[in-house]
Design a protein around this nucleic acid. Structure first.
Lengths: 192, 192
DNA sequence: ATTCGATCCTAGCACCGCTAGACAATCAAG
DNA sequence: CTTGATTGTCTAGCGGTGCTAGGATCGAAT
């Protein structure tokens, strides 16, 4: 029994190694640089080993996305719980979200830009994704305003943040006025 | 002289053919399916011909993006000019924008998701891109609100629309309530 | 000690973006 | 009309990609 357990443990460790290595490589050099060959070389195994853990590159991206979703949820909750009052909480949420996107561009891409083969906004959506959305909802529900469905409001607010995050990072928006745009968004969208 | 002119004309026609074919192929089967081989086959020339018109695939994407920017500007202006009152104009703009993104997903990707080698939000930004932004600005400036820079407001509003467009199309947002989200966005962001 | 199954790697497939160099068509000069 | 240079296009190939078939190796159980 113990032998099998050890093997299982080692296998799980190697899977973790694959995911964290893929994430590192993606953050360092972009997802384009995350090829199965380079990834295999970094973990010091041959390519086919990757395919004994994941169906393909997509699933590896998906694994990084799930890891990122959990972290993002934590970051958002930490920021909102440290703020006083609805207005300050929403502002803290927005900053935390954009900060996460800016600090972990590759993870953010895996989550919302690339195809990681994950289901979104459905019953079979993985728990970390649901929870990340819940983290937003918890804070944003209180500023949705009368007669506005909290879920719908959260989706809309989230989409606005997502737009800011992606357009800024892709060089479509000048980065200088980022803070002002966030402030404008919070001021107008949140009902306090 | 006439011979050279004819050649120049034919060459320009072929360049148009490349761009429209790339666009067609991308809309039909996605940008992943737009390979230089397939594109060359469709225009009935060999691969190297593509490289006598464009530096590489990136520039072809960029050409599609510029074409799309011009069309989007036209669509937005048509929609806004047909509406009465600031509130209705902004709503029409939002609908026209999202409609364009939904109807021309590949073009939208070329514009705002993919790397077409174009400069954004700078002095050397190509004219069609500047003009597309100007089309948004013309309408949105009148609802920016007191003390809010029109450019900054336009950027923020645009980012929100962009977030809705991308998240909806990527399956990150349920498509049913799209109209309600747009309405919410217009109601809250636009000062009428 | 020997089987046998799990584990891993080598080698290779079809495809990608891109380019060098051969070849044919066209034009200007003698 | 015949050259020679120039232009245009194609074939073939490079190094890379994601992914997989099949053989080698190694450890556990008999």
């Amino acid at each position: 029994m113990s032998v099998q357990e050890r093997k299982q443990r080692e296998r799980a460790e190697r899977e973790r190694l694959i995911v964290t290595t893929a994430r590192e490589l993606a953050e360092q050099q972009g997802w384009d640089a995350v090829t199965t060959r380079r990834l295999a070389e970094r973990i010091e195994y041959s390519q086919p080993v990757l395919y004994s853990h994941f169906r393909g590159k997509r699933e590896i991206i998906g694994a990084v996305a799930l890891e990122g979703a959990a972290e993002m949820a934590t970051a958002v909750r930490a920021a909102t719980s440290a703020a006083d009052g609805p207005r300050a909480r929403v502002a803290a949420l927005a900053r935390a979200y954009l900060d996460f996107a800016a600090r972990n561009p590759a993870v953010y891409d895996a989550l919302f830009q690339l195809d990681g083969g994950l289901a979104y906004a459905q019953e079979d959506t993985p728990e970390p994704l649901k929870d990340a959305f819940a983290a937003l909802l918890e804070c944003l529900a209180e500023v949705a305003g009368d007669g506005v469905h909290p879920g719908l409001f959260t989706e809309t607010f989230w989409a606005s943040l997502h737009g800011l995050a992606t357009l800024t990072r892709a060089g479509r928006l000048p980065p200088e006025d980022a803070a002002q745009r966030v402030e404008l968004l919070v001021d107008r969208l949140a009902v306090v």
